[in-house]
């Protein structure tokens, strides 16, 4: 269990994190979202004991990060932003070094390094120096370093930033396989990641917690939640009538009248009615689907709201 209480951090006159409260339990994969400069990385730096908070408390599985820093750090695996590592070392040397620092020796060390290498598929580049690796491989070296000691708590700052789609998929699978009895916190800009791997999503803006819930709950806040999205083979002029259907909030038409998005009122499911409408008028459609919601839209609304609040205070 990670407990964060009233956590604050100021740099000169900038407030990076503002009285943040958060609890993350075992088995949770927490997606940490927010615009650039929202305080995500700063929070993670305080969770891992790199930065000291100005006020507030962080407890990692019962260990206070300020008073029992080393105890807490033993059970944390951390991938800092940009996955820094020693460029002059080979991958093998680097991972051996991390394992040695973490107190593994002999056969134990060899086994731990081999396991981590296998999990992130680094076998092919073990003898190459880190600085000659591509961005994707460097990120994987960082990941290997973070999971090497099989940590209880895994904190990953933008683990898939700069990776190609295949690599992203690989990292996500890795996180999913890891996370059964662990606590995983991932910060990301990529919203699709949240629905793909997270069991819970937290949005912060201006150092404050703005939203906390499952990805489904977040999607349900979207205007597009349960919206019906279809594409017409031929344009049709009776589309305005869609607006008259019970439960419809709005109709958005684009692509020269062919792409139609029918937005539902909150809590309404309008697919059957829209389906009837299409059948009655014998419209020819290429595709039709019900949207779960759009995270980017929810994200923008929530973070902008916070910005406006902040402006008002100033």
């Amino acid at each position: 269990m990670i407990r964060v209480e009233q956590l604050s951090k100021h740099f000169a006159d900038v407030t990076a994190v503002d009285k943040l409260d958060l609890q993350v339990g075992e088995g949770e994969v927490l997606g940490f979202l927010g615009p650039n400069g929202a305080g995500k990385s700063t929070t993670m730096k305080m969770l891992t004991g790199f930065l000291s908070p100005c006020s507030g408390k962080v407890s990692i599985c019962g260990h206070d990060i300020e008073k029992q820093r080393l105890e807490a750090q033993k059970i944390i695996g951390y991938l800092p932003e940009g996955a820094p590592s020693y460029g002059d070392m080979t991958v093998k040397q680097f991972l051996d070094f991390i394992a040695a620092i973490r107190g593994f020796r002999g056969v134990d060390k060899t086994r731990k390094v081999a396991e981590a290498v296998e999990k992130v598929s680094l076998q092919g580049v073990l003898g190459r120096s880190v600085e000659t690796l591509s961005k994707g491989f460097k990120r994987r070296v960082g990941l290997a370093q973070a999971i090497l000691h099989d940590p209880k708590v895994l904190i990953l700052d933008e683990p898939t930033d700069g990776l190609d789609p295949n690599q992203k998929q690989h990292v996500r699978e890795l996180i999913q396989n890891l996370s059964r009895d662990k606590i995983v916190i991932i910060s990301t800009h990529i919203l699709e990641e949240v629905t793909a791997v997270c069991t819970r999503a937290v949005i912060i803006a201006d150092g404050k917690l703005c939203s906390d819930g499952s990805p489904e709950q977040l999607l349900a806040q979207s205007r597009y939640h349960n919206a019906v999205n279809f594409h017409l083979a031929e344009p049709c002029d009776s589309l305005a009538l869609l607006g008259g259907i019970d439960g419809v909030a709005e109709v958005e038409i684009s692509e020269c009248g062919r792409r139609i998005v029918v937005l539902a009122q909150r809590g309404q499911f309008i697919y059957p009615q829209v389906d009837d409408f299409i059948r009655q008028r014998a419209l020819v459609i290429d595709s039709i689907s019900v949207e779960r919601g759009r995270l980017d839209e929810v994200f923008q609304r929530i973070t902008r709201l916070q910005e406006q609040k902040q402006e008002a205070v100033r």
Binding site: G49, K74, I76, Y78, P80, S85, Y86, I101, R102
Partner: peptide, 14 residues
């Protein structure tokens, strides 16, 4: 400069 300070200061070593 390279940011590895963040890595090493979060390892459990005094």
């Amino acid at each position: 400069r390279s940011g590895t300070i963040e890595l090493i200061m979060t390892l459990p070593v005094s």
